[in-house]
């Protein structure tokens, strides 16, 4: 196995690992939203501005979970494609070696068709991998977008929390937890993007 193939396997496998952490965090945001909603309800008019924000946070968390679920399915497809590409490349190399070793054999030329076919299959796999990586990067960008939106919401939440009197601390804690979660999602997804981006144009 070449170093490039090993890195490719690791990159694809690391997406699932990073995204499972993102999933945990997104669920935490969803929980924070439910918590915030309860506090805002108790706070009544003092947290009037906070109430629509909690719905928005919840919606954002749900969308992030949905996106990550889809990306995980896609990452599995990408992993299978990596295995397929590895097998096709190994076959092509063996076929070329067989053709070279068969030089001078009566039926040496008959090996040309399997060699050509294996090369085309390998190239198809490589092209498909690049296409799929591009699409996956697009989906990861959507998650990043959600993370950025969550940070904006966290900033707004802090402002609204400051109006909430005795509920200030509880609502600020919600805003902090959303902000922290958004950071984590951003960082994890960014690592996925860096790991994959080298394969988009390789």
């Amino acid at each position: 196995m070449t170093n490039q193939t090993k890195s490719q396997f690791i990159a694809v496998a690391s997406i699932t690992s990073e995204l499972s952490a993102v999933m945990v965090v997104a669920k935490e945001i969803s929980l924070a939203a439910a918590n915030a909603k309860a506090i805002a309800f108790r706070a009544g008019d003092k947290a009037k501005g906070f109430q629509p924000i909690t719905d928005f946070i919840n919606e954002l968390a749900k969308e992030t979970i949905e996106l990550v679920t889809n990306i995980n399915i896609y990452a599995l497809v990408l992993y299978r494609l990596t295995v397929d590409e590895f097998q096709k490349t190994a076959a092509y190399n063996k076929f070329e070696l067989a053709a070279k070793m068969a030089e001078g054999a009566v039926y040496a030329k008959s090996m040309q068709e399997p060699v050509d076919h294996a090369r085309l299959s390998m190239q198809d796999c490589q092209r498909q991998f690049k296409r799929d990586v591009s699409q996956l990067l697009g989906q990861l960008e959507a998650v990043m977008h959600h993370a950025r939106a969550a940070r904006v919401i966290a900033a707004n939440s802090r402002i609204e929390a400051s109006q909430a009197g005795e509920y200030l601390q509880s609502l600020q804690a919600v805003a902090e937890s959303v902000d922290k979660a958004a950071h984590t999602i951003h960082d994890n997804v960014q690592r996925c993007r860096i790991a994959l981006s080298i394969y988009r144009n390789s």
Binding site: L97, A99, Y107
Partner: peptide, 12 residues
């Protein structure tokens, strides 16, 4: 595989 295939190509 490769040496075996190459060897078989002497016969078929």
């Amino acid at each position: 595989f490769a040496p075996m295939m190459a060897a078989v190509l002497h016969h078929a």
